[in-house]
C-alpha cells in the first residue's frame, strides 16, 4: 500500500519535472550570467527572472489584451459609474474576501488582525448593508487589510520561486500563484450552491474584481507605460518590492481588503491616515 503511494507520487513528480522542462525549453531561458563576474551573478539572482524571454512574450500578449479590452473597459467603467457606487462595489468585493483574509490572519498566528477582520465583516455586513458601506472603517476606525495564501506561505518560509508574468492576471510567481489557487479553492463562495444563478454571480464577482482593480490602476499603469524605459522591468521590480512589504505587514495601508493575492490586484489604491492623526513615537 505504502509502496503504491510512493511510486505514484514519484511518477507525478517526474511528470511534473518533464512538464516544467518542456516549458523551459519552449520558453527559452534567460542568458546565464558569466560565472566569473560576481556582480553579474548577484544581479541575475536578485532579478530572479530565469525565464525572462518567456515572461516578456507573455507581457507582450498582456499589453495587447490590455490595450484592446482591459483598459477601455476600466475607463468606461470610471466614466459611466459615479464614484460613490464604485466605492460601494469595491467595499462589497472586499467584504466578500473576508473568509480568505480571516483564514490567513489565523494561519499566520495574528489573532488581533483576525479579530479586526471578523469584526469588520460583522459590522459591514449588517450596518454596512451587505458590505456596501465601510462602517467599520469610517465610523469605528477599524481599517481593512489584505491577506492571502501567498503571504501565509511566505510567512511559513516558502520562497517565492522564479518570477512569472501571466496575461490578464499580471506579475506573479509559483508561490503567489499557488496562493491564488488556494484562495479560490478555500473560498466558501466557490462551493456554495449550483445552477445558473450561482454561476452568473460568481462570474460577475470575478469580472468586477478585474474591472475594479484595473480602474484603480489607470493612472499608475499609464505612467509606467509612457515613462518607463522598460515597463516590463519596472513592473517586475515594483511587484516584488510591494509584495514583500505586504508580507511583512510593513504598511497596512498598502493593500485594501479588496486586493487579490497576486498580479495587478496586489495593493490597489491607498488610504493613508488623515493628516493630524496622533503618530506613534
Amino acid at each position: 500500500m505504502r509502496l503504491t503511494i510512493r511510486s505514484r507520487s514519484r511518477t507525478s513528480v517526474s511528470r511534473c519535472t518533464v512538464a516544467l522542462m518542456a516549458l523551459a525549453i519552449l520558453a527559452g531561458c534567460a542568458t546565464r550570467p558569466d560565472p566569473n563576474d560576481p556582480e553579474e551573478v548577484a544581479e541575475f539572482k536578485q532579478t530572479n527572472d530565469p525565464i525572462e524571454p518567456f515572461n516578456r512574450s507573455m507581457f507582450a500578449v498582456h499589453q495587447g489584451i490590455d490595450r484592446l479590452v482591459l483598459r477601455p473597459v476600466a475607463v468606461a467603467y470610471r466614466d459611466v459609474v459615479p464614484p460613490p457606487i464604485r466605492t460601494g462595489i469595491r467595499n462589497v468585493l472586499g467584504n466578500l474576501r473576508t473568509p480568505v483574509i480571516l483564514a490567513n490572519d489565523m494561519l499566520q498566528g495574528e489573532p488581533r488582525r483576525a479579530g479586526d477582520t471578523l469584526g469588520r465583516f460583522l459590522i459591514n455586513t449588517t450596518l454596512g448593508l451587505g458590505g456596501i458601506f465601510d462602517v467599520a472603517g469610517n465610523q469605528f476606525g477599524v481599517k481593512g487589510h489584505s491577506e492571502d495564501y501567498g503571504q501565509t506561505l511566505a510567512v511559513w518560509g516558502v520562497g517565492e520561486g522564479a518570477y512569472l508574468f501571466i496575461p490578464v492576471l499580471g506579475p506573479s510567481n509559483p508561490r503567489d500563484l499557488t496562493g491564488f489557487g488556494l484562495g479560490i479553492a478555500s473560498d466558501p463562495l466557490t462551493w456554495v450552491g449550483q445552477g445558473v444563478t450561482v454561476d452568473v454571480l460568481t462570474g460577475t464577482r470575478a469580472g468586477m474584481s478585474v474591472v475594479d482593480t484595473r480602474e484603480s490602476l489607470i493612472e499608475v499603469i499609464d505612467i509606467v507605460n509612457s515613462e518607463s524605459l522598460d515597463p516590463y522591468a519596472t513592473l517586475r521590480s515594483a511587484y516584488r518590492q510591494r509584495r514583500n512589504a505586504e508580507i511583512r505587514n510593513a504598511n497596512d495601508n498598502t493593500a485594501p481588503s479588496a486586493a487579490g493575492g497576486t498580479g495587478f490586484g496586489v495593493g490597489t489604491g491607498i488610504k493613508p491616515p488623515p493628516p493630524g492623526t496622533p503618530l506613534p513615537r
Binding site: D230, A233, S237, Q241, R242, N244, A245, N251
Partner: peptide, 17 residues
Amino acid sequence: AEGTSLRLTQRSEYSSV
C-alpha cells in the same frame, strides 16, 4: 511609495535597458 523604492525600481529599469 507604498513599499516600493524608487531607486530600486529605477535601477532595475536602467539595468534592463
